[in-house]
Design a protein around this nucleic acid. Structure first.
Lengths: 219, 219, 219, 219
DNA sequence: GATGAATGAGAGTTCATTCAT
DNA sequence: CATGAATGAACTCTCATTCAT
């Protein structure tokens, strides 16, 4: 919490024996460790080495491994929300806003691999941890609000159909962006795909194409 | 003596000391265990209990935990291929074939949860195991051939555009079917979605709609 | 026992499904396995593979691992006794007989490494097995008798002192022959000795020299 | 609190949480365990109980069983070197020095049974570990230097021949001292020897006699 | 006479977690 | 605020031994 406060105040003061700084280091280390090795594969020992702090300190701050995991899971949502909040959709028309959102989503999944890793891990575990996180719902609301607004603008302008549920539509967007990134290793092996930057750029365009066509289709 | 009796009665009822049967039991148990707990979380002890055999037998047949995992991963592909091979696309027109394939894919992901779980686990591990499996590529080729044929039929009939790469299009299909199933727990928590059978049926229709529209779009 | 009988009768009849032949194969395999890996390090599984028979057969013949070990230990004495019995001392004078015996002993230790290995293993175990072997004492008596005779001949001829206990003197002979062979690996490492055939030949001569000098010394 | 008290009382009485002390306890326990049971027969569990520490601590300090074994093997050399370095040869004439060395060597082998046991075990294993130990050679050099000096003194005084290689002569000494101790159990069983202190004292005298005679012999 | 199939008990090793300073 | 030292419990894997044919 102290850490959050500092972030908000914009005054990062890294120094030795700084509790909030240590906490942040641990959190980032945990995020990396859990996303690279999953819940059971993660090692508290490695987290402590990655963070450069002793193990007892970690237990002091978080309690136990599950609590570290929960904090890391939450952190992954916090980080993606932050990135999303910096997006600007207001200066472009609705169709372009959708394309922009698609490109951003796929790019974000690729650039921050721990988000997909953490969520896959959590779903593998049946979502038992995310259910216990407070305001888990609130964390995604920003994006949803902005998507809702885009869809309404499009409907108002008569370019989009007006019976599209934003949540369902977001699921479609996420689906098309998630799978090619999440399953990149098995896809490469099984389909022999060469998944370089160009392939992903093409993926984003195809996805945007499908999604926009769906919105424009009067159905 | 029981054995002799069986021989005499002419009814082979193998229950014990049947190597291939034991191997199959272990494989299925491993598939379930690994998909429920991931690679590190899986316990050989639980696999042995699930399969109703002793631990040493497992090591005798497979070698070590990684080898069991590899066998289970391969098995999950084999099982989905088998299910796919039973699909019939020839008796319907191309558009309906696509819809059928989409419904089947999403349904299969839901019904055989270990397929998604195993592949997510494997991707979490960087695909290090699937790279070592021989004929990993061959295992999906059947489906791809059939999809290729559907697309060609549609193009020949003039209802589909003819510049669609089957592999890329399969990625689109899989994407739309994968994410809603794979991420069902986090979606339910974060979006508060009620994901019952009806929701998934609707999902399949929306996905099929988008995919078919994409194929029909001359662009 | 059947095996021994055959050996004595001098008619080896190796054929399939021959109990005594299997027993001999197992014994030789056990001798090698135990001498290469010690008592705890030996593996029944490897013995069965070395002998080319199944494990249950081994248990059928011998009982358990300790019994196999005991049989192998006894076999190592039997084999060395056989070799010793072929030595001829009568045609040479007493001094030369001693030299011959020393050369033979050292050579034998080198050529049949399992003898040293088995005895070292047994002594490591506190001799708990050899104590249970019947006629363990008798097994070495042949050699001792012949040494006694050599010493008496030398004393009669006035070339050897006559107060030498044969057993003690045999311990001296064995000591000088045993250590350079038994400890060949640590000696090579720690003293940097190049222990080739020549070195061992020189060893034998030095040992014989010391032993003969001791006998000739009127003391 | 106990710790605080100690600090105040000024009496450092380290009993727990003393890394170097724990390490020493483990080493001695390992030395005993390996020498009593050999490499494969040794149990890490027993070492931990003997040392009064937990198993994980052992792995923390040494790595794995082989590493514990290597450390114990080295320790056995270190201990004998230490004992040897306390011997004084300068105040006696060369002949007596040799007798003293022989008596010491045989006595040391009897009193520190783990030295013989460790080296026998290592030779049983083909010396695979000692080859990896650094400065294995250096560890015995002190004794060799001192023996070299004794031999030179004897040669200078004209009482010893001057063509004796110190390493070879040490092998003779060790041979005569090693075998009666190393093979005490099989000797007792096979030869029916009563090997009490007196027998060993006699052994030492006989050995010294032979060795000295050899040195004095002009040959 | 012989063996493939199977296992209970135990071995080495790891890991989350705590103690004492 | 921070940590080196230490451990109980559990995990992977092995091995002598037996079962059923």
């Amino acid at each position: 919490m102290a850490g959050r406060k500092e972030e908000l105040s914009g005054k990062p003061k890294p120094r030795k024996r700084d509790a909030s700084r240590s906490r942040g280091l641990i959190l980032q280390a945990a995020l990396e460790e859990f996303s690279e090795h999953g819940h059971s594969g993660a090692r508290v020992d490695r987290i402590s080495r990655r963070a450069g702090v002793s193990k007892p300190l970690i237990y002091d701050y978080f309690g136990d491994k599950d609590a570290i995991y929960a904090a890391a899971l939450k952190e992954s949502y916090v980080q993606i929300r932050q990135a999303e909040s910096e997006l600007d959709f207001d200066s472009v028309d609705p169709e372009e806003a959708i394309r922009k959102l698609v490109r951003f989503t796929l790019g974000h999944f690729r650039e921050k691999p721990w988000f997909i890793a953490m969520l896959n891990t959590e779903n593998l575990r049946g979502g038992s941890t995310i259910r216990t996180l407070e305001d888990a719902a609130g964390v995604q609301s920003v994006l949803l609000q902005r998507l809702t607004e885009i869809l309404r603008r499009g409907a108002d302008q008569g370019v989009f159909r007006d019976n599209v549920d934003p949540r369902d539509f977001y699921v479609s967007i996420a689906s098309l962006c998630w799978f090619p990134v999440s399953n990149r290793f098995t896809l490469a092996s099984v389909f022999g795909l060469e998944m370089d930057d160009e392939w992903y750029a093409q993926r984003a365009e195809t996805a945007a194409e499908m999604l926009v066509a769906h919105l424009k289709n009067p159905a």
